[in-house]
Write a protein that binds this DNA or RNA. Sequence first.
RNA 1: GCGGAAGUGGCGGAAUUGGUAGACGCGCACGACUCAAACUCGUGUACUACGGUGUGAGGGUUCGAUUCCCUCCUUCCGCACCA
Length: 926
Amino acid sequence: MQEFDFQSVEEEARKKWNELHVYKVDIDTSKPKYYVLDMFPYPSGAGLHVGHPLGYIASDIFSRYKRLKGYNVLHPMGFDAFGLPAEQYALQTGQHPAKTTKDNIETYKRQLGKIGFSYDWSREVVTAEPNYYRWTQWIFSQLFKSWYNNTAEKAQAITELIKIFEQSGNLEVNAACDEHTPQFTAEEWKAFSEKEQQDILMHYRLAYQSYSLVNWCPGLGTVLANDEIVNGVSERGGFPVERKKMSQWFLRITAYAERLLTGLDTLDWSVSMKDMQRNWIGKSIGAKVSFPVKNHDEEIEVFTTRVDTIYGVSFMTLAPEHELVEKITTAEYKDAVQQYQKACAAKSDIERQQEKKVSGQFTGAYAIHPLSKVEIPIYISDYVLLGYGTGAVMAVPSGDERDYRFAKHFDLPIIQILDIQDNLENEANPAKEGKYVNSDIINGMSYSEAVPTVIAALEKMDKGTGTINYRLRDAGFSRQRYWGEPFPVYYDKDGIIRLLDDEQLPLTLPEVEKYQPTADGHSPLAHATDWVNELGDGKTRETDTMPAFAGSSWYFLRYMDPHNEQAFVGQDAQAYWQNVDLYIGGTEHAVGHLLYSRFWHKFFKDNAWVSTEEPFKKLVNQGMIQGRSLMTKADSINGVPEGVRVPIMLCSPGDKLYEDKLAQLIQSDNRFANVDLEKDVNWENTEGKRYITLHAEVEKMSKSKFNVVNPDDMIGEYGADTFRMFEMFLGPIEAHKPWDINGIEGVSKFVRKVWRLYNIDENGQANFNEEASKEELKVLHKAIKKAEEDIERFSFNTVVSGLMIAVNEWTKMKKLGRATLETLPILMSPFAPFVSEVLWSKMGKEGSVINAAFPSYDEQYLKEDTVNYPVSFNGKVRFQLEVDASFDKKQVEEFVLVQERTQHYIQNQNPKKIIVVLGKIVNIVM
RNA sequence: GCGGAAGUGGCGGAAUUGGUAGACGCGCACGACUCAAACUCGUGUACUACGGUGUGAGGGUUCGAUUCCCUCCUUCCGCACCA
C-alpha cells in the first residue's frame, strides 16, 4: 500500500490549481456573491509566525465552504505597505522603504503560498503603489471638497455651501463645523477676501487644516505618536517630549459620530467590539449652561451630563489654561494663579493624569448661579481638562467624587440635592434615584422629570441648552514622515491651499537623500526642495504625508475592482460585491481602522459611490496564539527579573541549561550585559557540572522573546494540510491560546489515516467497493451534518473532531464504498485542500474539488431504530435502556417501568412523577 | 473605578434551545507487531473510602443546571480625573 507523502501530494495539487486557475473570480450574476476578507497585513521584516495565519486559515475555510455551497466568493489579499517600521529601517540603513517593503511582501507571499490559501492574487492591492494611492489621494480631495449637512444628514459638495453663504450667510446653516466658526451674513461673505473665505471654509471641510499640539521630541528630531511616549519621554532613547503647535490636517469624523453609533446596531459584531466603538464615540446627552461672572460681561460656559444637579453647585472650576482665567482673576490672586498655572504647565499630560493629590487655586472671582442667583467662587484646577467639553466644570460636591474631594480640601459647601444622599459626611453619591431637595423648581421630582424642567428653565432665560456631546475627536491626518501618501495639494503664493487636478494624480513620492525630519520638525519631504517648489509661481507642496490608516480605510473596495483606471471602485463591481460579508482579524483595530473605514464608507455612500451604509457586516476576531518561552527560573539570575529566555528550538521545559551554553546566550543578549555568572546565578549541581533548569512560560509570541515558531518549519515537517487543521484544532477561533506542538501528531496521524482509507496500491490506484454499506453511509451523513452546522457557527475545532470520529469508525470497516470516498474529499477540502484535491483525483473525478458541491445530508441515514435512554432517578443517572425509536412518551414510560432494574430502584414505592423527554432522557421522581 | 469576555481532568478543549459532563486530540499506562526501537494497531485513563463526589466559591429556580438568576473570588482585554 502506498503511504501518504505530503510533499508529492502538495506538488500535485498545486500543479492542478495553477493549470486550472481555480482561484480567479469574476462577477457572475448567476450566483449569489459572498465576500470574505482578512485584515490587511503589514509586511514586517520578521515574516509570518504561526500566530498570523490563524485568522487566514479560518477565513479560507469559510471561503472554500461558501464556494462549495454555490456562492461566488471574493477572497482577496494584499498589503498595507506604508508605515513606520520600513521608514525606521530606512533611517538606520539608508535603504529605500520601497525596496524593503517589496522584499518583505515577497517573503509574505511566499509564506502564505505554502499554506494553500484560495486568494485571487490577480486582485492584490498594495497601498504604497502609486496606482493605488492615486485613489487614496483622490478620496482625500473629495473629503476636502465636502461639508456635512446636519439637516440632510449627509456630506455635500462645498460648492453648495458656498452658494448658501452667498445667499444667506451661515446663520441658517446646520453643519458640522468648528465651535469657533464666526457668523456672517451674505453681504459680509461677499466682502471677505478670498483668503478669508478659504479660511472660513476650512471650518466646514471634511478634510481640513487646523493648528494642533503635537508631541515634538527635539532629541530625536521628530514628532511622536502617543504610544511612542512612555512616562513623558520618548520610548526610543528616553528623550523629553514637548507639546508643539503645528498646522495639521484633520478629517471631520465627528460629523459622522451619530451615524457611526447607530450603525453599530445593524452589525453582526461581538458585543465587546461594539462596546469599544460606542465607548470611543462616547455620546453623552447633557446641557450647556452659562454662568455669568460677577462684575464682568463674560460668561463661563460648562457642559454637564447632570444638569439636574445644578442646585448642588457650590463652586466652579476652570482648566488652568482656560482663556477666561486671565480676565477674571482679581489683582489679589494674580500671583498665586500664575504660579499655579506654571506648575501645571511644567507637568506633562501623563503626569497630570497620574496626579492623585487635590490641588487648585482660587481666582478671587465669583460666578452667579443662573437659577438661584447665588454667588459661587471660581477656582482653577488641573483635574479639569481644556480638551474635554468646554474646559470648565460646574462643581457639584454632593454628586461628584472629584468635586467632593476638592470641596473637602478647600472647605467649600457640600449641598445635599437628593433625599437619598445620606452619607455626605464621608462621600459623594452620584445616584440618579430618589427625589430632589434644596432644589427650588425641581424639589420632589425624579431624575427624568427634573432634567427637562431645568433645561426648559435655562433655555427660557437664555442661560443654557440641551446638547449632545461626543468624546470622539476629529482624526489627525498629518504625519511628519516620508513613507506615506503625499497630500494632493499645494499652497499658492498667498498661502491658500489648492487641490491638484484629478488628472495630476498620483502625486508620487519624491526621492530624498535622508529620511530624517528637518530640524524644525517638518517631514523628510521638505528635504526634496525641487519637488516642493516644482510647480513654480511661489507654489509649494505640502510636505506632510498621510497616516497608515488612509490606505487601509478603503482597500476592501479596491479588491472588487482592482484595475479600474476610471474610479476607485466601479459602480458595477460595487453593486455586485456590495460589502464585506465576513471580516476576520484581531481586536487591535477595534477603534482605529474599523472606525475610520466605517466613516469613509459612509462618506462614499453619501456620494452614491457605494450602495451600502456599512463596510463590514460580520466581524470575527481571532484570538492570539501565544508563545511558550523557555525561561531560566525567575529568581536564578538577580537583577534580571524575567530571567533569560532561551530560543525555543534549542530545548524543552525541564531541560538543563549548562554553564557554557548559558554564558553563550547571555553574551548574545545585551540585556544581560551586567550578569555575573559567579555571583548572580543560583546554580544547581547534581552531576559534577553546573546547570539551571528551564521552565515554560506563556506570553506573546515575539522575536525579542525567542519564542517564535515559523510556519515554514511546521509545514516542512508536517505538511500544509496538517498545519492548517492543527491551527484550527487548537481551540475556538476567538480564544487566545498557547502554541503547543504536542497536539500536532494527532492531526498528522488523522491525515495519514484518511489516506489509508483509500487503499492506494503501488500503481497509485485507490481500491474501494462500488456500493457503500449502510453503516459507512450513516457515519458519512453524520459527519456531513456536523461539518455543515459547525462551519456555519465558526466552530472549526469541532469540525476537525467530527471528521476524526468518522475516520476512526471507517478505519474499522477496512474497505469503503465509492459514495463515501468521493464525498469525504469535499467535506475535508476547506480544511485540508491539498490531500483532498489529490484524493478527489484518485477517485477519478474531473476538475478540482474546489468546484464540487457541498454534500447535503440525508435524514434517512441518521435515523436510529432504537434510542439509548439514560434512566435517572431524582436526576441521578442509574442505567441505560435501549428503547424502540418509534415509541411515544406513554410507551417509553410503560417500557421503562416494567424493567427489572427500574423496579430495583423504585423498591415498592410509587413514583411521584415520571418525566420522559423523547429521544433524550427519562427521569423518575421518587 | 467603569465596561466586556472567560474560569471544566495532567494539558488543549467538547457538551448548539436546560436533558448521559469530560467528545476529539495530546500525555500517561498496559498489550500486540519487532532481535530491538520507531511507526502502526488494540485496551484503559476526572476523583473515589466503591457509598458516592465532581464544571472557580456560595446560594437560588427546576423533575433535572457547565448552561438560567443572585452574591463573591480569580484571570485576560478595553476605557478612565470624561464634568
